[in-house]
Amino acid sequence: MRGIDLRAASWRKSSYSNSDGGECVEVSDDFAPAVPVRDSKVPDGPVLVFPAPGWSSFVSAVRDGQLRD
């Protein structure tokens, strides 16, 4: 996943982000087959880039409640 230029990325806040300004995760859909993820409170900070199938599995697990304590 090296070499992705994120300067022109369009970001959207995850629907699972907290609505009161905390725990805000943003993702970009511009780079298939990769999914860049960042903290919306630190837009110039680090970005994690996941393979699309791995990100999809993670989102499904969150949606299904599999990652709860």
Rank of each mutant, 00 (worst) to 15 (best):
D64W: 02
G45N: 08
P51A: 13
K41N: 04
S56I: 00
K13D: 07
Q66N: 14
S17C: 13
A9N: 03
W55D: 01
L67D: 07
R68V: 06
E26L: 13
D39F: 00
P46S: 15
G22W: 08
N18G: 09
D39N: 14
G45M: 12
V27H: 04
S60E: 14
P53A: 13
P53C: 10
P53R: 10
V27L: 11
D44I: 03
R63T: 07
P43D: 13
V25H: 03
A61P: 07
P33L: 04
R12P: 07
R38L: 09
F50Q: 03
V42P: 00
S14V: 00
P46Q: 11
D5Y: 11
S14F: 00
S15R: 03
P43F: 02
K13R: 11
R12Q: 04
D29P: 12
G22R: 13
P51E: 12
A8R: 07
F31M: 01
N18L: 13
S19Q: 15
S15A: 15
D30T: 08
R63M: 15
V37Y: 06
D44P: 02
V47P: 08
I4T: 02
P33H: 05
A8F: 02
D20P: 04
R68K: 15
A34F: 07
R12G: 09
R12E: 14
E26A: 14
S28T: 02
W55C: 00
W11V: 03
D44R: 14
S57F: 04
R68E: 10
P46L: 09
F58M: 15
R7N: 04
E26Y: 10
G3H: 09
V42M: 06
R63G: 12
V47M: 05
A52D: 15
K13M: 07
D30K: 06
G22V: 05
P43N: 09
V59P: 02
V59Q: 14
S19L: 12
S60G: 10
V47R: 06
W11Q: 09
V42R: 08
P33I: 03
A9G: 13
G45T: 06
E26Q: 12
S19V: 15
F50A: 07
G54N: 12
P43A: 08
W11F: 05
K13P: 11
D39L: 04
V37L: 15
D44E: 13
S28R: 04
L67P: 04
P36Q: 02
A8E: 15
V35Y: 00
V25Q: 10
G54H: 12
L48P: 10
D39A: 00
V62A: 02
E23W: 10
R7M: 08
V35L: 02
A34G: 05
S40K: 01
D64C: 01
R7I: 13
E26V: 08
V49T: 10
S10N: 13
V47A: 08
